[in-house]
Design a protein around this nucleic acid. Structure first.
Lengths: 236, 236
DNA sequence: CGACTTAGTGTTGACCTGACCCTAACCGGG
DNA sequence: CCCGGTTAGGGTCAGGTCAACACTAAGTCG
């Protein structure tokens, strides 16, 4: 307690500076607890310190001087889920003066995790998963951040090949469509969906067998840059 | 022992921290010095200190503890141009470890300035304007930042009503088209351009007169949100 | 074999886009 | 006062995309 006060008053006159943190919104698809339909989930961490002690918050931490921003985001991801992200991208830098009692600017990343890996997630103390659309009452301005991340995810999936971030290497068109339906929250016409996707996919020639109906073909993501993705990553 | 270390949880070096700066890419349209065609320009500041002393760099400075990010960007804009921006938006947070000898994370904004106001720009010591596509050899990673800002500008103008950031309150369709042509760097069909734009414009009823040809109608930007703009600004 | 289920194809009409032609309105000079 | 020049603004048409929906293909199960 005394330390908190000391810290907040730390830079009042002389050495007042701005703290820099990196947080990550981690998305995975899991069945909705009520409807059973695939939905977007994310892990949150229960705060064990003031401010906002006891509230849920996005995983993250202060930026280490030797770490790149994306590395920092990836490390918090590994720490909270034990997984490596399939897609990692900067979301936004949040820096309102009043977003925290002490002055902190958070650079937020968002990540996608495969369903297959998602199953291997080990329970981590103080970490719990929630349906992304239903979280509220988070610490700091994290409610706004989650909402914004969802908006970006839903917008970006319509013009950029990020859905593969949720899928294994090989997948059927139905699985791919399920990802889109889960993210966008509405049904898509299988026939039209197929036509839109087929150009960006590589057929593996194999089929998924063992089901009680016609076996669907397996595809792989075709990484040829049909359109410039316009994502800027600082790993160059 | 600073309490920052206690908070980070890692007992690393003593006072090693990350500095936080806010820079702004300021775009305006001016005639190209060779072709005379309207082109994208931006102001740069000559560095008077190491590192990169004598090199050109984006205007900016350290984030003040009492300032919001966007406010900081706007202040540097006023400082370097004496103008208020017509459009101000966060671009990206650049934080590579090796982008500067000392560890600095730069949160970069980009802004648009009206041509009319651009004419009133006062000469500021150590500030000079350049054709955006032709700058190179800047300090830090600012070459990359300018290139990325241009990419974003050119992408965003195609799906978001930001062109008005370059224009006065009332304008003709030819002026609006001139903005698009300058940014995109290619000619546009006046007839098709009209059809695409006309839905998002309000006719003022007035015309621009005094020219030696048919007087063009004056329009105003229609701010009805025909589509969600998906820009997140922290001013709420 | 036949019912059922899911994979995948064809077709159609509405809409958007680019290319291009045409008319409308204003000027200035014989 | 007509006439050519210039720019504003509208019309048309071919090609592509997209949603909607009917249809065929290929498996399993009884």
């Amino acid at each position: 307690m005394t330390l908190e006060i000391d810290r907040s008053g730390h830079g009042s006159a002389t050495d007042q500076r701005v703290d820099l943190a990196v947080s990550t919104v981690i998305f995975a698809l899991r069945p909705h607890p009520v409807t059973g339909e695939p939905t977007v989930w994310l892990p949150l961490v229960r705060r064990i310190r003031e401010p906002f002690e006891g509230r849920w918050a996005l995983p993250g931490g202060p930026l280490q001087p030797h770490e790149d921003l994306a590395s920092s985001a990836q490390h918090t991801l590994e720490r909270t889920t034990g997984l490596t992200p399939n897609h990692l991208e900067q979301l936004y830098a949040f820096g309102r003066v009043d977003r925290s009692p002490d002055r902190v600017v958070s650079i937020v990343y968002w990540a996608l995790v495969r369903a297959e890996e998602d199953a291997q997630v080990l329970p981590v103390p103080n970490v719990e998963w929630f349906v992304a659309d239903e979280v509220s009452g988070l610490a700091f301005d994290h409610d706004d951040i989650v909402e914004y991340a969802l908006t970006r995810l839903r917008a970006k999936i319509t013009y950029s090949p990020i859905a593969y971030g949720f899928l294994p290497e090989e997948f059927t068109l139905a699985q791919l469509r399920e990802v889109y339906e889960a993210v966008l929250g509405r049904q898509l016409d299988p026939a039209n969906f197929r036509r839109q996707m087929i150009g960006r996919l590589q057929a593996t020639g194999r089929c998924l067998e063992g089901l009680s109906h016609r076996p669907p073909a397996l595809y792989r993501h075709d990484p040829t840059p049909s359109r410039t993705t316009l994502t800027f990553e600082e790993t160059r």
